[in-house]
Structures are given as C-alpha cells and as structure tokens.
Nucleic acid binder design. Sequence first.
DNA 1: GAATTGTGAGCGCTCACAATT
DNA 2: GAATTGTGAGCGCTCACAATT
Lengths: 340, 340
Amino acid sequence: MTETSHNLTLEEIGKLAGVSRSTVSRVINGQRHVRADVRDRVEAVIAETGYLPNQAARALVSNRTGLIGLVMPTDAEELFGDPYYSALVAGIQLGCADARLIFSIFPVDGQRDEMTVLSTLVAQGFVDGLIVTAGAGSDRLITALRDRGKNMVVVGHPADDRGLRRVDVENRAGSAAAVAHLVGLGRTRVGFVGPGASYLYGRERLEGYRDALVDAGRGLEDRLVRHAEPTVEGGFEAAHALLAEDPDSVHVATDTMAVGVLRAIAERGLRVPDDVAVVGFDGFPGAPRTEPSLTTVVQPVVDVGRTAVHQLHRDQDLAELVVLPTVLRIGATCGAIGGA
Amino acid sequence: MTETSHNLTLEEIGKLAGVSRSTVSRVINGQRHVRADVRDRVEAVIAETGYLPNQAARALVSNRTGLIGLVMPTDAEELFGDPYYSALVAGIQLGCADARLIFSIFPVDGQRDEMTVLSTLVAQGFVDGLIVTAGAGSDRLITALRDRGKNMVVVGHPADDRGLRRVDVENRAGSAAAVAHLVGLGRTRVGFVGPGASYLYGRERLEGYRDALVDAGRGLEDRLVRHAEPTVEGGFEAAHALLAEDPDSVHVATDTMAVGVLRAIAERGLRVPDDVAVVGFDGFPGAPRTEPSLTTVVQPVVDVGRTAVHQLHRDQDLAELVVLPTVLRIGATCGAIGGA
DNA sequence: GAATTGTGAGCGCTCACAATT
DNA sequence: GAATTGTGAGCGCTCACAATT
C-alpha cells in the first residue's frame, strides 16, 4: 500500500518479480501459459506495490477503454430528477456489471455544443460506446454519431431512425392493451390525452389507442383526443378540455400527465374510477404514487438500460431494433377492482 | 465529413497538408510559431477530413485526460432524484466549462466494490481528478484515494477529514442565524429536529442552534432536541415527539425533514407560524415547494460544485478547506412577514 | 539572430513471434 | 513437441532539440 510518487510500469513490476513485462501482462490479463509459481510471485509483487496498469497505454494499443457512456441532457433541471433516467441508469449499471464495463454519465447542456464534447468522447476514444436517449434535443447528435459510424445504441425513437441500433418498448401495443382493458370494462367513451406530435412515443401510443377502438368496432372521435406538453400542467389542461366532451374514461400517454388529469377530474367534482376511469403509461419505479393508485402500462426501463449495454457490447450482427414488451399494471383508477 | 474506416493520425494529416506531424500538433494545440498560411492549410485539411486526435495517445504522453469525475452513490434510488445532486451537477458542469474540462458522473453502487471501479478510474488515469461527496457510504473510498495521493476534492464533511481538500458550507453559522432569527422574532421555546449523530452536517447544525441560544442567554433543554432519519417520515416522527414539549418554534436541519415537521404540526391542529414557527436548512433549487412557503437557510450547492472543480484543477497550493456562506431566505413559516 | 519547421525519442502498454525449457 | 517465457515492434501522440528559413 505504500505508494511511490511515480507510478510503476509493467517493466518495473517484471524486474521486481524477476520476469519480463510480457509475463506480468499475461498475469494481469489472466492469460494461460504462465507457471503457477511465477504467477504467484508476480501477483505478490502487484499486491505489494499496489500497481495498476496505465489505461492510456492500454487504450492506445488495444483501441478499447472499457468505458460505456450515457449522454444525459441537462438543459431542463427536471431531467435529472426524472424517475425515467433513474431507472435507466440502474439498468445500464446492471448491464455494465454483466459485461465488466465501467459506466459513466456525461451530462451535456445546450450551452456548450454537445458535438464538441462528444467528438472528444467517442471519436477520440474516451468511451467504447455511447447510449443516447431519443428526443428533440438529441436528434442532431444521433445523426452525427451514426454518420461517423460510432458505436452507439439509441434508447427510444428518434425522428430519423435509419441505420440505428435501438432499444425501445412496445408503445403501440401497450396503449392498445390499456384501451382494450377499458373497453372490456364497459367504457364506451374512451378519451386520450398525450403529448404533441413531435413526441414519437406519444404518436405511437395514440396509434395503439386507435387500434384498440377500431378492433372493438368503435368509431374514432377527434374531440376525445387531446394534446398538451407532457407535464402535470399539460395533463391538467388537456383533461379540462377533454372533460367537456363527457368521456367515461381516459388513456393518458404518460403517468406525469395522468397526475394532472386526476387533478382536473377531482376539480370538476367527478369520481375516479366511477365517473371517469384513467389508465396511464410508464410505471417508472421511482415515480410518486397517486391517490387512487394509478392503473398504468408499465414499460421495463431497467431492462431497457441493461439491454442497451448488451447491444453496445456484443457483436454487430445483433438485431438492429430490440422492442421490449410492456405490462398493464392494474391499480384503482380503471375500475377493474373494488367497489366501482 | 466523409470518414474512412480507420482513423487518421497526425502524421497522415501532415502529409496531406505538406507539413510534419509536429506542425499539425502545434496547430491543434494553438501554439505560436506557426506561419499563418501554414496554419490555414492545416486547418483546412483537419476540417475536410474530420480528424480528431487520439486521446489515449495524448493521455499517455501528457498524463492528462481532461476528464473530471463525480462519484455518485446509487444504492438508494432516491439519491438520483435528489435535488442536492441535481444542483451539484449543475455547478460542476459550470466549473468544467470554465476550465474546459469534460465532466463525467460515475454511478457506483454498493454491490460492486467501489474500490475496483475507482482504482480503474483515477489510479489508472481515466480521470484527472475526482469529486466525492461525503457520507457514510464514501468514507472508505475517500480514505483510500487520499492515501494514494490522488487528485480529489471532497464535498461536505467526511468522518475523517485529515489531509483532504474540501468544499463545505457554513452549517454551524447558518443554523445559528436561523435560530437567532427565531429568537429575534420573540420565540422563547425553540426546538431542533435533525438527523442522528452519524451525520456530521447535522451535528454542526445542532451546534449552531446551541450557539444561538447561548448567545441569546437562553438555557438549553435536551427535550427540545429530537433526532430521526433525514427523511420526510423522520421529520414527521421527530416533530410529533417534540410537539409534546410545547415548543413555539423549530429549527429543522434539512428541508426534507421540515416537510414532515409541517405535516405533523398540521396533524395536531396547530398553525404555522402562529403556533409554531419553522425554519429549515438547504434551500435546494429543485426542491418541492411547501405550503406555507418554508423559511430556510440556503446553502449554495451550485457554487459548491463549481468551486470543487476549481479546487481540483488549480495548483496544489490552494487552501485545504473552502467554506461557502449560507443565506437565510425568509418565507412564510417563521412569522417574519404577514399577519402573524 | 529570431521565427518557423522537422526529427528523434519516448510515454506504457499489447501483440506476434522467436527463444527457451 | 508442447508449455512457458522474452524480445522487438508499434499504437499515436508530445516534448526537447536540431535544422532550417
């Protein structure tokens, strides 16, 4: 544990153990063809000196650093407290542990040009691969990295998805299941509240809503579909507009918006689920609980993170797109259980 | 923008521009002694080819990577959604922008041995320096990095603070100001709710509470001091115990606990600030608002992050400990404004 | 002689191969 | 002859110095 001011090298460890730098390298990298007693001697010297190989030298010759990066936009401060990122990070961490990689998050804000930072990271070889979440803020970045042929996995659905390795969830089928559930419970006027068309996942969830209504032989009423920003306030406002159309149920495209929807319903003196049933989407682990507890389509964010690492790490011959299934979690807002 | 499969080298760029690798290196690193027309020619080739220097080679020779790391514990999922980290990250990002460094967060969970990860990071030269937040979970790590003489700045107050470069806030003086404020408003039975003794910041804030009462010539009553876990629930329980002692005000050592304290006061049918005044501590930017709005001691977390980077980056002759001042922010819970 | 440019060496590893047992 | 070990070269830069204008 006593460490000298300058860092030791393979050569020096070899000298101390009476072997060449090659043998030390073999011991460190766990290669065969090292005699047991030699291995022990080298390992003893390593332990004694606290030697750690220089990563820059290693990276220079092997072209690998063992680092995986997640690009995280931080323009909006909320993003950091977002339970989505929290779960995604947990999943990526699991994936990195599986693959013996080091996980690092690169916060990128709009002030600095993200391209500058990222060229430094990947193009210049800081990280072996990058996980980037889809969204308006990352479209340019994703295209640039793709064009440079960099090792990248995109989480979610960016505007331009050509030639990308992606991990996504079953948005359309998930929402279809949510709406089919409401229809199955006897609801006849099912509304939809979701984010604007610029959010692809919102568009997909809206399609799922339509699929289910068409499958059930129902008509589609444009007035029962409302868009707003994917925030609590957005949900609140959209719900007020929707409630004027007298729906008996709503599928809300994000749980965050669903909080606003529940608030608007309560403000109108309506009961959930008796007057209006609600089914959300997302079901993130750290998200705040609602009262009554929200029925929602749970997307497996932790698995998404873990899968993204696997996609990054394995051979290139993997499927371009991995879509993970969602699960409908029954709570108290859909009227499937209890006194409704 | 057309990129070939293999990355270019300095040598190749030099050949394309009709100069040596040295001249290209000078252009890239912005050194003098390059003729203007040569510089232009080299820059044109760089732009054309999209050349980016290999960071591993750079790091190998210069012993610097330009990367700063924040070690972030993720055992508890809440930590990620914590407004404290959110603000700290924002500050570190500002500091890195100032110093033209790249900022990276290393999530470390208790499952994997954090020492393994970190030896890889610093000892082996992935990052030039590390910012570590104090806390029970990081004590071992901090000691190990200090013993290895690694470039590190600790945020907050670890159990063993010997030989560390630290950035901290005025916990003691901040709490003293909070309590002096309550005393100045005529409160005579000032209580304290804070975390257990294992939290050093809590101990310091308790000392500040005592300082202010002693300064005001008041006695100290042990029954007016209550400890619990630094959570909303902890604050709630401690407040219920405290309220049995009939205090007319409370200084709560964290805003999170203060939320629980306000809830307990309301549950007892008491009014804030009329019956019981409350002053918290922290004032993090992203923290949820309370009703009535909380009077609190604001610690400058963003500045803490920024300062930590400066400490890491500048010469070693900087002060070992930088303590940033806190500010009392008047809200509606102390009775200084409005109808109380 | 000052500004500009190029050359050689070396950072600390890994890999292919040769030389040992 | 198979297992084990060592040697040489090279990854792509930066730095000190020499060589050029």
